[in-house]
Design a binder for these strands. Structure first.
Ligand SMILES: [Mn+2]
Ligand SMILES: [Mn+2]
Ligand SMILES: [Mn+2]
Ligand SMILES: [Mn+2]
Lengths: 148, 148
DNA sequence: GCCGGTAAATAGCCATAGCTATAAATCATA
DNA sequence: TATGATTTATAGCTATGGCTATTTACCGGC
């Protein structure tokens, strides 16, 4: 019992878009974290990246190869990983979006710990327009206190 | 510049959870759509499933194999695909969640067309608790009219 | 009932993202 | 400075989810 008769092409485009977002999600999470590691530790070692991502070390190495291929990072063997200009920009954008999504979820009544968990996946599918809507919502909450 | 010093294990668990949600996402979208097709057309043919998913026919066939393996669907060769009890339950749950996510996004100010697009990816990362929060929010909106 | 057209299945390719096991490089310290 | 410990890279495996090309099954009309 779908809402409308469904336009196959539109629906297909929707799925294609979600698949595309997904394929970028891994890149986003890695660059964000590499940026975090530089801010916290002054460097991003493969071992630390792997630990925080919750994957085996060769899995992280392989992901880093993809970052390099997409010009988001460079690395000096046995010397750590570095974000390019583009990587830094992406990391900052992704980090800001991540925080907005978490804050927004909390603002609409999601428990903080759950918000953190869900945001890790949700963030990658939040478009520019949706992010703007979240920001507007937060601005209102901030200005007028918790609405009920 | 992360918010807190970051607990590597917690963060790793968060990523693991997002990966798990992702691996279920495809199953969810397929069962929802197969349910839709049965409601609309009385049957779910592989060709229609592929068209709506925006993938080639063999890709749909392979996904259906996975649905069968996970006991969400059965199929009679050249005769279409059928949801099991579990598949029907999942489809209904996923369809309801999808609608709630879209309605919620629209309610917080996301343009309807954008809400449709983003929801297709977001929905799979919305936990039970977050969904409850969305429902509460919508109930308030319904009861008291559009808040500003 | 046969035969052509359509639909589905199968074969076999590629890329991604995970893993373990092992080799190689670096580093610390004796 | 040699050596052992640690870290990183590499090799090679699996599963998923895309694809195209081809074969097989079904079905409707003659
Ligand atoms: Mn994430
Ligand atoms: Mn994130
Ligand atoms: Mn979806
Ligand atoms: Mn959906």
């Amino acid at each position: 019992m779908p809402d409308q008769p469904a336009h196959p092409k539109d629906q297909a485009d929707r799925f294609a878009r979600a698949r595309e977002s997904q394929s970028v999600a891994l890149l986003e999470d890695y660059v964000e974290m590499i940026g975090d590691l530089h801010a916290e530790l002054g460097e991003a070692r493969v071992a630390d990246i792997a630990e925080r991502m919750g994957v085996a070390q060769p899995t992280a190495t392989k992901a880093i190869s993809r970052l390099k291929r997409e010009d988001l990072a460079t690395s000096r063997p046995y010397r750590g990983v570095f974000l390019t200009e583009a990587g830094t920009l992406l990391a900052d954008r992704v980090r800001a979006r991540h925080r907005t999504v978490v804050a927004f979820l909390v603002a609409v009544g999601v428990p903080a710990d759950v918000a953190e968990l869900d945001a890790e996946g949700i963030e990658h599918h939040v478009s520019r327009q949706t992010l703007k809507a979240f920001e507007r919502y937060l601005a209102n909450v901030d200005a007028r206190g918790r609405r009920r």
